[in-house]
Write a protein that binds this DNA or RNA. Structure first.
Lengths: 190, 190
DNA sequence: CAATGAAACTAACACTTGTTAGTTTCATTG
DNA sequence: CAATGAAACTAACAAGTGTTAGTTTCATTG
């Protein structure tokens, strides 16, 4: 683990600002000011505003992709696989909640890398859909509309970044376990 | 139901554009071009770009607030109340998915009305939290972390706008029912 | 048919945007 | 101590921003 470069600091700061106002509303002067420098100085470290967004989003998207692939290849039940997916999202969102905001809200501002991002995203959804479908086939999961189950789980997990900074969610183990319970068992007592 | 004014058309078109690129990335020239006119002409109908955002968001936020108040005042079980909340979200998101995108993603760009919006939002969350807490107290709902149940339900409902335009969700009755099942009963078969 | 008024237009404004070019600062190193 | 190189700076740019002022178009109406 090498020490953090100036470029890394800029990207981290940018992610924080992007979370608050969105990519388009953050100017290079805003970012420079948050870094304690002038806008032009940023360009000693980064190539463009666009590149910052790209690095934030693509890094995260690839983390999700490789994380899910590992889960997919394991020999667990499909319910257990979903629990692992919950853990994956909690872990990544805990490590980088700011970046997750860009991933969720600013992906459409990717330029050259937009198609690549969409490919990763589509594949991710498809693999998760298959886990659910397998679960239904093997009688682990109720025979309800698969798209709705997928939607419900995925949107909850995708929004994690906005709740995780609150103090009651500092413990990723506990959060993952509680979230799994709610998503899988529901909230009904009977 | 009076006929749609030019102003209404502008706001509707703006909501569509805001959904695709976000408030900050949509210019008045983009909006004008989508309306088939020049940017300056927009100002015959609207006061400012900011006013468009305000009308989109505040209208929706107030719809949610009054909708939830009615549910709260009814004499149903808390589980039934949650089912009604699901219906409310499905109904509003079906009617105005574009506006919902602004409500979810661009509320931070409200200026004078930001505090008012945040008040409505906080109250909404608090009332829903109370329904869940009541449900737990009355043994209708499992005694799990209330914040997590609230989070899970609310984020799913808040993201509805992005899935509803897909054809399989055209039937609001069916969608509400299926969503309620998944959110309340979970996905587990046992 | 003259007057009205809604709704478009052209032209321009002051300011902000991302980015580039070239320069300065200064601790580290041969 | 001279040379290096990372990291800041100033100044400027071309393009784009929201918005205003004043004007034109033209169907509707008294």
């Amino acid at each position: 683990m090498k020490t953090e470069t100036r470029k890394d600091e800029i990207i981290k700061t940018a992610a924080k600002l992007f979370k608050e106002k969105g990519y388009s509303a953050v100017t290079m002067r805003d970012l420079a000011s948050a870094m304690g420098m002038k806008a032009a100085s940023l360009y000693n470290h980064i190539k463009s505003k666009q590149q910052i967004l790209k690095e934030i989003i693509i890094t995260l998207a690839e983390e999700f992709t490789s994380g899910l692939r590992q889960i997919q290849q394991s020999e667990k039940s499909n319910i257990k696989k979903i629990e692992e997916v919950v853990k994956l999202h909690v872990k990544i969102a805990s490590q980088n909640p700011y970046g997750m905001a860009s991933l969720n809200n600013d992906w459409m501002h990717l330029e050259e890398k937009l198609d690549y991002y969409l490919e990763l995203r589509t594949n991710y959804e498809e693999e998760l859909r298959e886990i659910i479908a397998e679960g239904v086939k093997k009688d682990e999961i109720i025979d309800e509309n698969i798209e709705i189950m997928l939607f419900s789980i995925l949107t909850t997990l995708r929004s994690l970044y906005s709740w995780i900074p609150k103090k009651e969610y500092r413990n990723p183990e506990k959060l993952s376990q509680q979230l799994s319970t709610v998503l899988i068992q529901g909230i009904n007592k009977n």
